[in-house]
Amino acid sequence: MKIEHIAIWVKDIDKVCEFYRKYFGGVVQPLYHNPTKQFTSRFVTFDDGARLEIMHRPDICVERNVGIDKIVSHETLSDTQHLGFTHLSFSVGSKEEVDRLTQQMYSEGIPVVGQPRTTGDGYYESVVLDPEGNRIEITV
């Protein structure tokens, strides 16, 4: 058994798909559109077979809500945690690649909320935010 895919609601499908294509080598699949439900999505596939479904529907909240009716900005997302899914993790193969990719993202304006480091459980990782504030771990 394996996880077939993970889905993320977003407000800008193309911007999010481009992030995963540019930084993690994802291949963006054609747009699916269901006009009756006002639903659109694209799959992003990765070399190892993993897939993300990037989805949009106009009636889904466009900002991340934390707690009861509390809307937070990207600046405070690094300190905000909640129950449920908390991050995606991409293995890039080496500490040097973690460092290089994190620096590239930082220089291109991607929020880095955790600098490269070895964690208490032995992972070498950094943490960035995708264009919609989802936490992404970059690890060996």
Rank of each mutant, 00 (worst) to 15 (best):
F90T: 06
Q29W: 03
S73V: 05
L83Q: 10
R51D: 01
K70G: 07
T86A: 13
F19P: 05
C61Y: 00
M55K: 06
F19G: 00
I54V: 12
S73C: 11
L31T: 13
T76Q: 12
T76E: 15
T45Y: 04
D69M: 09
G84H: 06
I54C: 02
D69Q: 15
E63I: 04
F39V: 02
R51N: 03
Q38I: 15
V44S: 04
S78W: 06
D59C: 00
I54N: 00
F85E: 01
P58D: 00
I71R: 15
H56I: 01
D48Y: 04
K37Y: 13
V92M: 08
R21D: 10
I71W: 14
P30M: 04
T40E: 15
R21L: 11
V44K: 02
P58V: 02
H56W: 02
H33Y: 14
K37R: 13
F24P: 05
I60F: 00
D79R: 10
D59V: 02
H74P: 14
H33P: 01
T86C: 11
A50I: 02
E53L: 05
G26Y: 03
D59S: 08
F90R: 12
G84A: 06
S89A: 13
Q38V: 15
V44E: 03
A50T: 10
G84D: 03
P58M: 03
V72M: 07
Y20M: 05
T80L: 02
R21I: 13
K37T: 13
H87T: 06
Q81P: 01
T76C: 05
Q29Y: 05
H33Q: 14
D79Y: 12
I68M: 12
V28F: 03
L52S: 05
N34Q: 06
N34P: 05
G25L: 06
T36L: 15
D48H: 09
T80Q: 13
V66D: 01
I68S: 13
F24S: 01
I54Q: 02
L88T: 09
C61N: 00
V72E: 10
V66S: 03
D79W: 07
L77N: 01
L83Y: 09
I68H: 09
V28I: 14
V66E: 04
T86N: 15
V27L: 13
T40D: 09
F24C: 04
S89Y: 04
R64T: 11
H87V: 03
F43R: 04
S73W: 03
T36K: 14
G84L: 07
P30R: 12
Y32L: 14
S89F: 04
Y32H: 14
V62K: 12
V92I: 12
G25W: 08
L77T: 06
H56N: 07
Q81N: 11
H82Y: 10
L77S: 01
F46R: 12
Y20R: 03
E75I: 12
T36V: 15
K70R: 15
H82N: 04
G84E: 03
G49V: 02
G26N: 04
E53Q: 12
T80I: 08
L52T: 08
H82C: 06
K70T: 13
F85M: 09
F46D: 11
Q29R: 15
G26E: 02
R21H: 09
L31F: 01
G67C: 10
Q38L: 15
Y23H: 08
